[in-house]
C-alpha cells in the first residue's frame, strides 16, 4: 500500500505552501516537491490564494503589515490536512513566530495553534509523516549539504536531510567545514548590509569549494540564491539544488 493512503484507502491530502520565492523565481522546486509527494501516494493540492508567510515585514519590524499577510495565510490554509513547504525559514516563521506576532489577538492565536501541528517542512514531512528515507531517487554527483539557519536552529533539522540524501543512489555526500555557519542572506539583512552579507557568503563558498562538490543542497532557496550568486562571481562550477530537486531525480 502506498504510503500516502490511510486506512480508508483514500489518498491523504497535502496542501503545498510553495512560498512566494519559489512561486516567483524557483517554480521547479515546487514542482519537484509535488512530484516526490505524488510518487509517495499523496493527493497534492495547491491553494491558489496563497502568497507569502509575512516574514519579510516581520523581520524588518513592520509587524502590522506582517500580521495582515499572516492572517491571509491562516485563512488560505484553514482547512488543509497537511501543509508542506519547501522552506525551513518560512515554516519556522509560521511555526515559531506567528504566536509572537499574534500574542495580543486570541482569535488568531488559536487559529495558529490549530494550524501548527499540520504544518511541515518538506524533509520533516517525508521522515516524520510519510516515514520514508528512500524515495527512489538517483543523482550521480558529489553534493554538500548547507544547513539553513532557521531549519537548523529553529526547527532542529539537521540529520533528516542528510539521511534522505544518504539514500539517493550514486550520490556522495561530503560535509563542508564550519557547515553550521550562516550564508549571510538573512532577508532584509542582505539588503541593508550587502557588504557584510557578501563577506559571509565568501567564507561559505570557500568551504563549499574545499569539499569538491558538484552541488550544494539545502532546504531553503533563499540560502541557495545567495550561495549561487557568490559561486557565479567566484567562477566556481558548482550548482545549487533544493533537496526536493535532488529527491525528484530518477
Amino acid at each position: 500500500m502506498p504510503l500516502g493512503y490511510n486506512f480508508s484507502f483514500m489518498p491523504a491530502r497535502v496542501s503545498l505552501f510553495v512560498t512566494c520565492l519559489v512561486d516567483q523565481f524557483f517554480p521547479r522546486v515546487g514542482l519537484a516537491m509535488a512530484e516526490v509527494l505524488e510518487r509517495l501516494g499523496y493527493r497534492v493540492e495547491f491553494p491558489e490564494a496563497q502568497t507569502c508567510c509575512g516574514q519579510p515585514a516581520f523581520n524588518t519590524g513592520y509587524r502590522e503589515e506582517a500580521r495582515c499577510v499572516a492572517r491571509h495565510f491562516l485563512s488560505v490554509f484553514a482547512d488543509a490536512d497537511y501543509i508542506v513547504a519547501p522552506s525551513g525559514s518560512c515554516t519556522s516563521m509560521i511555526a515559531c513566530h506567528y504566536e509572537e506576532l499574534f500574542r495580543r489577538d486570541p482569535a488568531a492565536l488559536s487559529e495558529v495553534r490549530r494550524l501548527k501541528p499540520r504544518l511541515w517542512e518538506f524533509s520533516q514531512f517525508l521522515l516524520q509523516v510519510a516515514g520514508v528515507e528512500d524515495v527512489g531517487a538517483r543523482l550521480p554527483a558529489v553534493v554538500t549539504y548547507h544547513d539553513s539557519c532557521h531549519a537548523l536552529r529553529e526547527l532542529g533539522i539537521r540529520e533528516g536531510p542528510r539521511r534522505l540524501l544518504a539514500r539517493v543512489r550514486e550520490l556522495q555526500l561530503r560535509e563542508m567545514p564550519a557547515g553550521a555557519e550562516c550564508c549571510g542572506f538573512g532577508g532584509t539583512f542582505s539588503v541593508k548590509f550587502p557588504e557584510i552579507s557578501a563577506s559571509m557568503v565568501r567564507a561559505k563558498i570557500e568551504a563549499i569549494r574545499q569539499t569538491g562538490a558538484d552541488y550544494v543542497v539545502s532546504v531553503d532557496v533563499s540560502c541557495l540564491m545567495q550561495i549561487q550568486g557568490a559561486l557565479n562571481r567566484a567562477g566556481l562550477p558548482v550548482g545549487t539544488l533544493h533537496l526536493a530537486e535532488v529527491l525528484a531525480r530518477q
Binding site: 523581520n59 524588518t60 519590524g61 539557519c149 532557521h150 537548523l152 536552529r153 529553529e154 553550521a180 555557519e181 550562516c182 549571510g184 542572506f185 538573512g186 532577508g187 532584509t188 539583512f189 542582505s190 541593508k192 548590509f193 557584510i196 552579507s197 559571509m200
Partner: peptide
C-alpha cells in the same frame, strides 16, 4: 541600524 545588523541566524542564542 543596530538591531538590523543581523542575519538572525541564531548562533548567539544557541
Amino acid at each position: 541600524w543596530l538591531p538590523f545588523a543581523s542575519s538572525l541566524c541564531g548562533a548567539c542564542a544557541e
